[in-house]
Amino acid sequence: MLSRTADSLFWLSRYVERADYLARVLEAATRLSALPRAYGTGTNEWESALATAGCRDLFQRFHETPSAANVTDFLAFSEDNPASIRKCLEIARTNARAVRTALTSEMWEAINGAWLELQQMPAHADADGLMRFLDWVKEMSLRVDGSGYRTMLRNDAYWFARLGIFIERADNTARILDVKYHVLLPEHAVVGGGIDYAQWAAILRAVSALTSYHWVYRQGLQPWLIADLLILNQQMPRSLAACYEAIVGNLERLGSDYGRHGEAQRLARSTYVQLQNSRIEQVFQGGLHEFISAFIVNNNRLGGAIAAQYLS
C-alpha cells in the first residue's frame, strides 16, 4: 500500500485516541477540582491537566494562570491549540478523507458522522455542557474504534490503524504516570488519606481503570499496585505492557506479510521484553520517574522507526 495511505491510517487512529485521552484527562481534573480546598487541590489540577496533555508551554503563550475555564477551553475547543479535542477530530477526519477508499464505509461514517456532529456543537461550553461533550467524545472514539475492529479486513491497513492506537495510548498512559509519579512514590503511601485517594482514583479514572483495579487486586488503592496495573499488567488494556503486546503483534504481522523485519520490529520487541520481564519493585528501585522517562523516549523512537520504515 502507499506509504501516505498507511501514514494517514496511523495518524487517524492516533488522533482519535488522543481526543479520547484528552476527554478523560479533563474529566479527572474536573472531579479533582470539585473537591474541597482542604484536600489540597485547586488550580494546580488544571496545571497538571495541561502537563498530562503535553501542552503546558503552548498554553502559556496564550494564558497566564490556568483556570477551569481557560484550561478546559484550551484542551477541548481551542483553535490555538493544534492538539485540542476539536482539532484532533478535524485532523482525524482530514486523514480519513485522504484515504477514504482504504476505510470501510462503517468506519468512514463513524468518523465523518462525528465530524459533522462536531460542526453543530457550540464552540465553547459551560460546566454542564462540557461533561456532555466529554461523554460524546468518549462515545465517538468507541464508535470509530469498534467500527474499525468489526469491519476492516485484517490486512496491512488494519495493522497500521491499530499501531496508531497503541503507540498513542502507550504515550498517553506514560504521560499520566510521568506527571503523577510523585503521588505514587512510596513515601506518599504513608500519608494515605483522602487527598491521595482522590489523586489515585483520578489517575485510574483517567485511564478508565478504577473498576479494573478492584477486580485485579481486590484491595484498596495502593500506589505501587496502581503503578503495576498501568505499567506491567497485561490484562489492563491501557497498561504499557498491554499496549506493547499489541504493538509487537501488529508489527510482527506486517513484518511477515511484507517478508521483512526491520528497526521497528527490533525496537518494539526490546521494549516489550523489558516490560514482560520487569517486576514493579525493580521499577521503583531503579526510579519510577527514570523508568517512565526512558519509556517515553523509546516509544517516540519506535514511532520514528515506524515512520521511516513504512510511512515515508
Binding site: M1, L2, R4, F160, Y258, Y310, S312
Partner: peptide
C-alpha cells in the same frame, strides 16, 4: 524511472 513510496 518513476517510483511510488509504499509500505514495502
Amino acid at each position: 524511472v518513476v517510483f511510488m513510496r509504499t509500505t514495502e
